[in-house]
Simulated scan of single mutants.
Amino acid sequence: MSETSKPEEKPYGVSIRGYISVLLIGAYLGILFVKSEVASWQRIHDMFLFREAHMYLIISLAIIVAMISMLVIKRLGVRSVDGKPITYKPKPYHTGVIIGGMLFGAGWAITGACPGPVYAQVGAGEWMALFTLGGAMLGMFGYAALKPRLPH
């Protein structure tokens, strides 16, 4: 390589170390979801029937941790793995949020998984979760195709 040529850049400016870090964090979260039973269909079912507070306590704790994390990120000026500043921009409230929330909640209640735990379920050998994952992918691509005609 000559002195004037630049080294080849990685996609999105993320190093191999960054990818490995994300993979390890994802594996840790998957284990955490399975061990805390967040990925358990029965726990989700009991939550929606108001039979137990297990999931509500976990969700409340997650919200508190996210709030503290955002405060720390803002105060310290933390940057993402690709060097960009991390900022929070609230999304506008509209009819599509209500419709999307109802569809998300119905899917969550029927399948016992939202987008995070479905990967933990697949990783834990719950083969029926492949249908949930397929439905989530279908919903994602369907939304992308219909987005121009949906209320935003």
Rank of each mutant, 00 (worst) to 15 (best):
Y19T: 00
R43T: 13
I58G: 11
P148I: 07
V22W: 06
S60F: 10
G123V: 13
A124R: 10
P90D: 05
K91I: 09
A39D: 05
M1R: 10
S40I: 03
G18L: 07
A27S: 14
V14W: 04
I68L: 13
I58R: 05
T132Y: 09
E52H: 12
G112D: 02
L133M: 15
M1L: 09
A136E: 11
E3K: 13
G96T: 00
A124Y: 12
V38S: 08
E52M: 04
E9M: 11
M67C: 08
A145D: 05
W108C: 09
S21D: 05
I98C: 05
G123D: 01
G134E: 00
K74A: 03
M47T: 11
A106P: 03
Y12M: 12
R79N: 12
G107L: 11
G26M: 10
P92W: 03
A66V: 00
R75D: 07
P92L: 04
P11T: 06
S15I: 04
G142N: 00
Y19I: 05
A129C: 12
I58Q: 12
C114N: 02
K6E: 14
I25V: 15
G142Q: 03
P7E: 12
F50D: 01
S2V: 09
A120G: 04
H94E: 00
V122T: 10
T4N: 13
G100K: 06
A129H: 07
G116H: 02
G13V: 03
A53S: 13
I63A: 11
Q121I: 04
Y143P: 01
I16Y: 06
H152R: 06
G105Y: 01
P7A: 12
A145P: 00
K89W: 01
M137F: 09
K84W: 09
H94P: 01
S2F: 10
